[in-house]
């Protein structure tokens, strides 16, 4: 799956996107984010507080308990601040 990061999450991880293998036991967005946070110290720092993160699966806003299904792209970012 393609992972894309924005704003403070992108800066903390030091990447705007990367590819990741989805473990078979990762069923939900929250499961996968927990696994991604194990990739490095930077990932752990960026992703430790799930309550302060928002997610989009294939460009649709979702919550942590959403099933990954056959999605191609997971975006992880802080709450939006446009307008």
């Amino acid at each position: 799956m393609k992972l894309v990061y924005f704003a403070s999450v992108r800066e903390a991880i030091g990447l705007s996107s990367e590819e990741c293998h989805v473990p078979q036991d990762a069923c939900t967005v929250g499961d996968l984010v927990a696994r991604i946070s194990e990739l490095s110290e930077d990932h752990a720092r960026a992703l430790h507080d799930l309550d302060r993160l928002r997610f989009a699966l294939d460009q649709e806003m979702v919550t942590g308990d959403t099933l990954l299904g056959a999605a191609q792209e997971l975006a992880i970012f802080p709450p939006v601040t446009g307008g």
Partner: peptide, 14 residues
Amino acid sequence: LIDRLKTEAPFWKR
């Protein structure tokens, strides 16, 4: 439109 844009559209300000 502006109220929902502020909480739903994927923009971030620095």
